[in-house]
Design a protein around this nucleic acid. Sequence first.
DNA 1: TTGTATATTGTTATAATATAACGTTATGTA
DNA 2: TACATAACGTTATATTATAACAATATACAA
Lengths: 132, 132
Amino acid sequence: MQKQQYLSKNQKIVLEHVEKANQPLKAYSILYNVQKKGLKAPLQVYRALDKLVEIGKIHKIESRNAFVACKNANCVVSNATAFSICESCEKVTEINNSKLSKYLGNFEDSSGMKYSKYNLEFFGLCKKCKNK
Amino acid sequence: MQKQQYLSKNQKIVLEHVEKANQPLKAYSILYNVQKKGLKAPLQVYRALDKLVEIGKIHKIESRNAFVACKNANCVVSNATAFSICESCEKVTEINNSKLSKYLGNFEDSSGMKYSKYNLEFFGLCKKCKNK
DNA sequence: TTGTATATTGTTATAATATAACGTTATGTA
DNA sequence: TACATAACGTTATATTATAACAATATACAA
């Protein structure tokens, strides 16, 4: 069987919902909102999310247990993710900085371990919240 | 009231247990193992962990929902953490690389956001697992 | 040393997040 | 067609984490 080319029904439903949001969504909030479309159980959402994360269409914000759609045109860097998170309003933005990704993509430490993947989360106050 | 100088009873118990482990521990595994010392409920463990994370004695491995003791002598960089995680044996190591921490500590992107904290998790295969 | 504020504790209940296990249906391709 | 893999649907349950409340301990200023 070929590597999957098209998204399945549930995967499409979940992805469309997450893409419409402009903030990270929790799995159970997704579930609640796609129930009208036929997804009734947590597992249906989690399975779709798992696959979408695997192929890079969606990223998980680990510190928040939440999911955002990838904003990078073609999601080529799904194994190399960086986010900025405002600790006040919880706004999350995917960082797309070629210098940073180059630096981290080539990073090696003394352990002899070669890294195939990374996830970086920056925290602080966004412009708006800083000026309050 | 002064900034806390000494750890409380529960905080000491939890920290000592986490420090003895050479791998990240789950909260409920900690709970199970400190029950003989009087901590009976999850909240007692979570509260101690929260405080210990706050003061930098313990770090949370977000992608694993697990906790490790800080290995940096004086835990000065508790708001700037980096870990390597082997996806096969789950061994986790805290990365202590001044170039990396300098680079990330000074990182600014175009959003105008200044970061006060970051957490970075690298994934790959450790030396041992790579040679299998 | 007494009052006051804050931190920590103990406890029960419950919320939120995620997966196991089972059988079925769909899809790609040899 | 037959086979393998992926996705689906469903029920139950595991795992992770917090709410809410009352009590006790600690630091320090008046």
